[in-house]
Every structure is written in structure tokens, then in C-alpha cells.
Design a protein around this nucleic acid. Structure first.
Lengths: 252, 252
DNA sequence: CATGGCGGTTATGTATACAAAATTGTGCGC
DNA sequence: GCGCACAATTTTGTATACATAACCGCCATG
């Protein structure tokens, strides 16, 4: 039907269960229970849980299966900061190596597309602003992906991928929730200016500037994160480590 | 016998097969074949391969099992540089937070122990120098482990762990091969001075200095790595991506 | 009443049989 | 002789049965 293998289906399904908050942080994930719910055998469930534990979404308990991982607010901030660190390193690597005009064009084109988006809605009150969220997310992710790819550093790319597997560390994870908040428009415009500055630094081979711009770029996300945390706009089901019994039966 | 579960045994065994060069980079790792060799069923082998692919030692081929991962010389350098980046971040975090005297004492004590080692053999010609390798490795690893732990940043710690799972990215992976090369003594002494400088920066809350010292500290390893690469002292079985047929039968 | 062992129960760990997919080899047609 | 399709074989993916270890309540005992 949807995915290729049962294991992939299981991974997606369990991830959704966690992110949507159906299962809460700290809660045990029993194989049989999951297998029943997903209408498959324990084998692919087990395999998926193994993968998810490596990705950090579930915590493996030695000899006692797995539980949903829980994160503190500080963890979110740290993850974003680390993404900035890695993207900064990527920007430096890109700046310090010989990159083709094609690669630079790729980066420029994505940023031009984002510019077009903002020209189309120059303020928060503009009509198309609201509808542009997903276009922006796609383009933003494409830019960050390109940036890491352009560094041509497989080890860095791997580490970056592992970090952004966390459901709040990816470049666009918070965008959808922040887009509609008042004052967000200027933040995204500022972020886009940083995008341009990063590419300019890369094009002119200024590695140090590129690195620090990459790090500073993450600060905007951190700011947005803090606003969302204080305003309660962040309905994250991953954070509160509320212990809850397994409770398959609702008899009480 | 040795380990707790078959899966752990499989993981250890396969890792050894790869690191010792029994199986070469790019070579396919068939489950049945491994299961036979390790005298167990496919299930724990499969589980271990899954884990190893997340650690980066084997590469998962979608739908076609796994193959031994291969690394280029540039990958080794990049891994070391990234370790410096993360240790620098850890040092900064440690410097910028309120750490207890106990934590500082722990760091100081490890460094004092390393000092004792060097006082015991002040030059390469000193008698006990050769025998101190493993003591140094233990203490060095303890220091780097403590440094990351002191940052109190679980996301960073996780990322660091994932990076150092690579068999050449860990702080002491190259030490044993470099120890006996001429001129290494001064390098280790210099590294130890950087250790002290890092702890001093942390103690005096100088985060930026701590971070850059952490990054610079990795440069020594990079230097050592280059020497070993040029001198052929690095008998790594992970690097050459020699394609080889599966060849269970040697009939031809 | 607290505690510690004991057995029932449930969960994970492992083996194996079977299904499906991919690879390889082979033969047919051109 | 070359290429393509098809079948044989191998390999991975999945289900299920069994083994083993962890958990939980109970009862005996101090």
C-alpha cells in the first residue's frame, strides 16, 4: 500500500504515535502491543524500534525493550545550537573548497525562489502570506540540505542527518508553528538575509565569516523557540515526562 | 559465554571481522554466511547489522543487505576535525555553566595522573615510555569523556558518541600507532599542555578560549594522522575500497 | 508488619519456516 | 554474436513458535 516494507511502515507508524502524542514520554513500547495495533508481526516492529532508538526518538532499555524518549526544553535549544554549529562547519568547508558555478547557482536559485515568496507577500497582512508556509518550508529545507551537501564532507553530512532526525532539530520543524505568530514575518526576512550572506561568504571564500553566519543563523530559531516555549505555542508531546501506566484496558 | 546476548556477541564479532580486515571494504555481508560463521541464527546477526549500519561501520543497501563501509583519508581527517568541533562546544558549555568543585577536581585529577606519567618518562628514550601507552590511552579517554560529560548537554553527548563510534574518530584510536614513532613524545606533551589550558579556561569561565582550544586540540591528532598516512604507519583495513567477489567457494 | 523467596505471568531474545524480492544464469530469438 | 526475457537460485523480509529472562503478586517466615 503505502511504503515498501513492513519495517518502514512500522517505523513511520511508531514515529507518528510518538510525535502525535498518542504514546507519552517515558511510556513503554511493548512489541506485541505495537504489533497488534499495526497488524503485523513482532519482527518488523522490533527492527523499527531498533532504528528509532538509534535515531533518538525512543530509548532502549537493556533487556526490557524500549520506551518513548523524553526531552527537556534545554535539549531543544541545544539541538538547535548544534545544528548551527554543524551548518557553520558546512559553510566553512564549502567556502574553503573549489566549488563549481553549478553548485553556486543551485544555492542562488533556491534563495531567489524564497525572495520571490517574500516579494509576493511583503508583510504579514499580505493575502498570500498564510498559504506560503509549505512552499517556504520546502525551499528552506532545500537550502539547508544543499548547504551541507556542498561541503562535500560525508562524515559531517552523516552527523547532521543524525541530529536532524530529532523531530525538533530539523531546519523547518518549528517553522509551521511560528509562521502565524505576530512578528514572525520580519524574523523570516532576517533569516533570508542571513541565507544570502552565507552564500556570499561561500562565493567569496570567506570561510570564517561563513562559519559564524551559519552559527548565528541558528540563533533566530532559538529565539523563535523561546517565544513559542513561553507563549505555550509549542504543543510538543515529547517534552513532558509524565509517567503513565501502560493501561491497555480502560476498565477503571 | 562472554557477552550477555547473542546480538551483542554478533555485533562484537562482526566489528572485529571488519576492523581486523578479514572482510574488506565494499564487501557484502550476507546474513546466512555470517550466521554460519558465528554459529547462531540470522536473527541476532540481522539485529547487529542494523546497529552497525547506524554506527557507520557497515553501509545498508536498501533491499540488498549490508556491505562493509569504506572510508577515504579525507574522511578520517574530517572525523577528527568534527570531534574537535564537538569537544570545543563541550568545553564552551562547561565553561559557561556553574560547575561544582568536584567536577573540576575530577578533571584536574586525571590531568595530574597524565603528568605523573610524563614525569616518569621525560623523554622518548626513557625506559618506561613504551609501557605507558595503555595507561595514557585510558587516562586520555577518561579526560575526553569527562569533558563531554561536564558540558551537561545530552544532545551533544549523543552526537559525540555517534561520531566516536567510528573506529578512527575516538580520541585514542590513533594513539597506539603513533606512540612509538620518533618525535611523538613532544606531541603528547603538547597535547597535555592543551588539556591543562582547556581546564584552566573552563575554571575561569572563558568559554570562547575553551572552545577554540578544544578545536585546536584536534589539530594535533590531524598532524599525527597525516604523518601516519604518509609514512604508511596506518595499516587501516577500512580505507582501501577494493571490490571483491563474495567467493565462499574457492573453486576457480 | 516487614521481608524475602517462590511460582505464575508477561515480556524480550532466539531459532526456524515460509514468502517475496533480487540476482544470476541460461536459452531463445534476432 | 548480442540482447532480452524467463527461470533457477540466492538473499532478504516476515511470521511464528519456542526459550529465556525480567516482573509481580502471594505466601511463608522472621
Amino acid at each position: 500500500m503505502s511504503a515498501a516494507t513492513q519495517t518502514e511502515r512500522a517505523g513511520k507508524a511508531i514515529r507518528d504515535l510518538i510525535i502525535s502524542g498518542v504514546v507519552l514520554p517515558g511510556e513503554r513500547l511493548a512489541e506485541v502491543q505495537l504489533a497488534e495495533r499495526l497488524h503485523m508481526s513482532r519482527t518488523p516492529v522490533r527492527s523499527a524500534l531498533n532504528t528509532l532508538s538509534h535515531e533518538g526518538l525512543v530509548q532502549a532499555l537493556p533487556g526490557r525493550g524500549d520506551a518513548v524518549a523524553s526531552f527537556a526544553a534545554a535539549d531543544l535549544r541545544h539541538a538547535v545550537e548544534l545544528r548551527g554549529l554543524l551548518e557553520g562547519a558546512a559553510a566553512r568547508h564549502a567556502a574553503e573548497r573549489d566549488l563549481s558555478v553549478f553548485e553556486l547557482d543551485q544555492l542562488n536559485r533556491v534563495l531567489k525562489d524564497i525572495d520571490t515568496l517574500f516579494e509576493d507577500s511583503p508583510s504579514e497582512d499580505s493575502a498570500p502570506w498564510k498559504d506560503h508556509v509549505h512552499e517556504y518550508i520546502d525551499l528552506n529545507e532545500e537550502f539547508h540540505r544543499l548547504l551541507v551537501e556542498t561541503a562535500q564532507n560525508p562524515v559531517l553530512a552523516r552527523l547532521y542527518e543524525q541530529l536532524t532526525k530529532l523531530p525538533f532539530a530539523s531546519p523547518s520543524d518549528l517553522v509551521v508553528g511560528y509562521w502565524h505568530l505576530p512578528g514572525s514575518h520580519s524574523k523570516f526576512v532576517a533569516a533570508q538575509q542571513q541565507h544570502w550572506a552565507i552564500v556570499e561568504s561561500i562565493a567569496t571564500r570567506r570561510g570564517t565569516r561563513a562559519e559564524f553566519l551559519g552559527r548565528e543563523h541558528a540563533e533566530i530559531t532559538t529565539k523563535a523557540l523561546d517565544e513559542m516555549l513561553h507563549g505555550g505555542a509549542l504543543a510538543r508531546n515529547l517534552m513532558a515526562a509524565v509517567p503513565r501506566r501502560t493501561a491497555t484496558a480502560e476498565s477503571n
